[in-house]
Design a protein around this nucleic acid. Structure first.
Length: 734
DNA sequence: ATTAGTGGTGTTTTT
DNA sequence: CACCACTAAT
């Protein structure tokens, strides 16, 4: 064990680590040793004997960050980290709710809905209430519910301003009732339920307040109102909150996060105790200067400027591609070059704004035979065969779970069709009982009736058989008895799915071996009786599956190029970073165009992207790009202009202000042919960059009519898409 | 009851 | 393009 934890820390870091027992805000810039400070403080608190490992709670946003923290603590201290309250907000709340399910008003076997599950419950609910999906799109309701829960608001507390809001709010209440009937909770509910539990139950609150002497929060800028409230409750008995965050890296406002929590925290908790960590240990100066210059364009900041002791390093490299395909080819070429300079592929990242952009890159990499790994997209526990297997397991644990039942009652096919289900749902709705109870009690004739009772018997038998088994055995038996295995064996391309199902057994085995969620919180105020202790491990595993959707893709370990969204890259660093698709409408995204607040969030996102690079940074954009099945003409992102030109080396076509080369877009011949539809008698063409006296720079994306009727559609940087009559509009070529 | 095919629609980021 | 909800055909 290292004898002196503080060795190698700079003054500010050391000050943060050794703060006395009081709340403080650590404003920690990118690459400033944030995680190190956080984990070292934990180790320091324990090593100096100030507290035991059980007296602290450390909370993060991602499972990855939580794991990282535990690993580092283990490396610094000879203690068993199992049982420590270190985890994500959702994970810790789940843990508390499992321990105090009755006080929280939940069934012991409550299941967790992921985003998909929630969406399907909502659709089901709207249908059963006879609400037209045209009038209330399920997505609206989902946003409404989640948004309000993240603000800590129940349906009874929401302020509504119009009829539609009132309608949504009524449905919010219905939604919660339905969840209660089924014994399921969504992600936000985990937090809200836990918060309400602590707020309402004084005994419990005092218990945890006394227990958690120190509370440490990572990525504090990403907390929402509800999380803030929860932290405030836990710290209410004199606990010290050590909040680490960077307002410039707040990129989850769309999920209800508010960096304003930082300012508020400073006022309410820290009493002005703020330590800024501004020395960056990651990047060369040119990269940092670029990031600093960019982020200065934001108005709402707490104020902080990164510096480094490192040299300038290389300039940033900017490449202007004709098409997305050419952009990918360029990246491929550069990666190959880096590789022959013996840079590890795993130390190179390809970043993009949205997941859809990975396809073109993957295509190029695949053809070139370069190993790569994509983060994002479908995760292990989200695959359909896995969701099916989990649904059976959920029914074993809690047969009242309508969502699970609907998912698998006729999969594999048992001759239970829409008609039968309708009858059952009708009956369940009328009698306010679960579908399972309806299935058990509603007399159904014919083949369907036989199918239903066979299904019911199957689940009951399975449950009984599971009682004597270990977790991995349960999973294996379920896959077998459910008929999933047999089904996929006959399917044409079911081999992968079978493999994934086997992988599920493996996942259960390692979860089992690691002791699952380890120590359950010790019950407070008398033990609570357990429904079926033998299924406890199963419930923990199901929660694990919902909370930690699993690796995005297998194949870790191998040296492979890293492809991910900028969001996914937060917290990571690489020798070389490529940021592609730097076009207006993509990055910054179209949806942020009109809202200054979300534009600032886009800029922070760009800031995060820039600061991922240690040594080399590539920026690129394409004049045309295939998006949603059609060619889109874009113009260079405004963010490129916010990076000082002297830090950037243009790799091609050194044009000055607006790096567009009219006409060249066609030259590669890779953009979809035939979109050249401009009127033949005009100098205007698709892809032509133009300047409008009022709207500024833009690019022609389509055209129609000819002569005096000729109109063109222009994508303007500031105004978006507009149709203009060529006869009147004062357009000039750029 | 199940499947294949069609047409309409909407698309950011994620615990 | 990809996902869906719905329809027509087996």
């Amino acid at each position: 064990m290292p004898s002196n934890l503080l060795e190698g820390l700079n003054e500010r870091q050391r000050a943060a680590v050794t703060l006395p027992h009081e709340s403080a805000l650590i404003l920690a810039g990118a690459g400033s040793g944030k995680t190190r400070v956080l984990t070292t403080r934990i180790a320091w608190l324990i090593q100096t004997g100030q507290i035991g490992p059980q007296s602290l709670l450390a909370v993060t946003f991602t499972n990855k960050a939580a794991r990282e923290m535990l690993t580092r603590i283990s490396a610094m201290l000879p203690i068993n980290t199992r049982g420590m309250w270190v985890g994500t907000f959702h994970g810790l709340c789940n843990r508390m709710l499992r321990a105090h399910w009755r006080d929280a008003g939940l069934p012991q076997t409550f299941q967790i809905l992921d985003t998909q599950d929630q969406a399907s419950l909502i659709k089901r609910l709207l249908k059963s209430l006879g609400v037209d999906e045209e009038k209330v799109p399920p997505r609206d309701l989902q946003y409404f519910v989640n948004g309000n829960k993240e603000q800590g608001l129940r349906a009874g507390q929401v302020e509504v301003f119009d009829d539609y809001g009132r309608k949504l709010n009524e449905l919010y209440a219905e939604y919660d009732r339905q969840c209660n009937r089924e014994g399921v909770v969504d992600f936000a509910e985990l937090l809200l339920r836990c918060d309400e539990l602590l707020g309402r139950n004084e005994l419990l609150r005092r218990h945890y307040q006394q227990r958690f002497v120190h509370i440490l929060v990572d990525e504090f800028q990403d907390t929402n109102r509800l999380q803030y409230r929860w932290l405030a409750l836990l710290a209410g008995g004199g606990g010290a909150v050590f909040a680490v965050g960077d307002d410039d890296q707040s990129i989850y406002a769309f999920r209800g996060a508010s960096a304003q929590n930082m300012a508020e925290f400073e006022r309410d908790f820290a009493g002005g105790r703020v330590i800024k960590l501004e020395q960056n240990y990651r990047s060369h100066a040119n990269i940092l200067d670029a990031a600093n210059a960019l982020i200065r364009h934001n108005q709402r900041r707490l104020g902080k400027e990164l510096w480094t002791a490192e040299g300038k390093g290389e300039p940033l490299r900017l490449y202007e591609a004709a098409t997305d395909i050419e952009e990918a080819a360029f990246i491929l070429e550069e990666v190959t070059g880096l590789r022959s300079d013996s840079v590890q592929l795993s130390d190179i990242a390809l970043l993009y704004r949205s997941n859809a952009q990975s396809r073109v890159l993957e295509h190029a990499l695949f053809n070139a035979g370069l190993p790569y790994r994509v983060y994002g997209g479908l995760r292990f526990f989200e695959r359909q065969e896995i969701k099916h297997a989990l649904a059976y397991l959920r029914l074993v644990s809690n047969p009242e779970d309508d969502g699970a039942l609907l998912r698998v009652i006729n999969f594999p096919a048992r001759g239970i069709g829409a008609r039968t289900l309708e009858q059952m749902q009708e009956s369940a709705h009328m009698r306010r009982i679960s579908l399972w109870q309806a299935a058990c009690t509603t007399p159904l004739g014919g083949k369907a009736g036989a199918g239903v009772s066979a299904f019911v018997r199957g689940i009951e038998d399975l449950r009984r058989a599971c009682l004597g088994l270990s977790l991995p055995e349960m999973v294996e038996l379920t896959i077998e008895r459910s008929g999933l295995k047999a089904y996929y064996e006959t399917e044409r391309d079911g081999a992968d799915r079978i493999e994934n199902l086997n992988e599920l057994v493996t996942a259960a085995a390692s979860f089992h071996a690691e002791g699952g969620f380890a120590a359950h919180a010790e019950p407070v105020g008398g033990a609570q009786t357990e429904a079926d202790p033998r299924l406890r491990a199963l419930e923990d595993f199901l929660a694990h599956a919902a909370l930690e959707a699993g690796e995005h893709q297998a194949g870790a370990g191998a040296d492979a190029l890293q492809l991910m969204t900028v969001h996914a890259a937060k917290g990571l660093e690489f020798h070389a970073v490529f940021i592609s698709g730097l076009e207006e409408g993509l990055f910054p995204h179209d949806n942020s165009r009109n809202d200054p607040e979300s534009l600032e969030e886009e800029r922070r996102l760009m800031y995060v992207a820039l600061t991922r690079a240690r040594r080399r940074l590539y920026l690129s954009f394409a004049q045309s790009r295939m998006l949603h099945g059609q060619t889109r003409w874009g113009i260079a992102s405004r963010f490129l202009e916010e990076v000082p030109a002297q830090l950037v080396r243009r790799l091609n076509r050194g044009r000055a202000a607006h790096p567009f080369a009219p006409g060249t877009a066609r030259s590669m011949g890779t953009a979809s042919a035939g979109s050249y539809r401009a009127p033949p008698d005009s100098p205007w063409r698709i892809g032509q960059n133009v300047i409008h006296p009022k709207f500024g720079p833009g690019v022609i994306v389509s055209a129609e009519g000819r002569g005096a009727d000729a109109r063109v559609q222009v994508n303007f940087r500031s105004e978006g898409l507009k149709w203009l009559a060529l006869e009147y509009a004062k357009l000039t070529p750029a």
